[in-house]
Amino acid sequence: MTMTGLDVFDTTVQNTIPWVNELCNKLGWENKHKVFQALRATLHALRDRLTIEEASHLGAQLPILLGGFYYENWRPGAAPIKDRTKDAFLQHIRDYFRTSDPNIDAETVVRAVFKLLSERVTRGEITDVINMMPPTLRELWPEEVRA
């Protein structure tokens, strides 16, 4: 039995659910809506600091459904955001949750999402993304992918 009656939709939902479930486990959260919002906010913050080419390469490795949310409200003609400090980058996540959960631990969220990405996206792509980041932001990625 299909959920939507369209195989392509059912398949992308089935391909996305493990990402959300794994992030639930990494964060220790049960609220899948909140977990999905954390994933979305972090992907947007990351995407907006990458070049158009690098953002596109990363987006191509996401499940179709996540890719749609990844590209949501993207302005490829805008210059990449140049967050130079960890706190400036984390502030994007805090801002996203300002009204729904102002006490969110943005660093925990980002580290969990970056860990998920490092497990689900090719090592070469993650290396390219990390190399585009200043050293203070690279430390948010798992040590094993920074080496």
Rank of each mutant, 00 (worst) to 15 (best):
N15A: 14
F9Q: 00
V110Y: 07
E22K: 14
F36Y: 14
T122Y: 05
T4V: 04
D87Q: 14
G68T: 12
R49Q: 02
R123H: 09
E54D: 11
P142T: 15
S100M: 15
Q91G: 00
D95M: 06
D105F: 06
C24R: 07
V35K: 01
I126R: 02
A79F: 00
T108A: 13
A79Q: 02
P18Y: 05
F69M: 03
A147H: 10
E107C: 13
E107G: 10
E119V: 09
T12H: 06
L65M: 15
N15I: 02
F89M: 07
W141H: 05
V145D: 04
F114M: 09
V129E: 02
F36P: 12
W141R: 01
G59L: 05
N103R: 10
K32P: 06
Q61K: 09
E107P: 12
L117Q: 10
L117P: 10
G28H: 11
P18L: 06
T127P: 04
N73H: 13
A41Y: 10
R98A: 13
R120S: 08
R40A: 02
A106C: 06
I52W: 09
I52R: 12
R49P: 00
V113I: 13
T108Q: 08
L117A: 14
L43K: 04
R123P: 04
T4D: 07
G59C: 06
V8F: 08
I81M: 01
D128N: 13
I64M: 13
P80Y: 02
E72W: 06
D101F: 13
E143T: 15
F36K: 14
I52V: 12
T122G: 14
N25S: 08
L140S: 01
L39I: 14
Y96K: 12
W29Q: 05
L90H: 01
K115R: 14
N131S: 14
V109R: 09
I81W: 00
M3N: 09
W19M: 08
P134R: 07
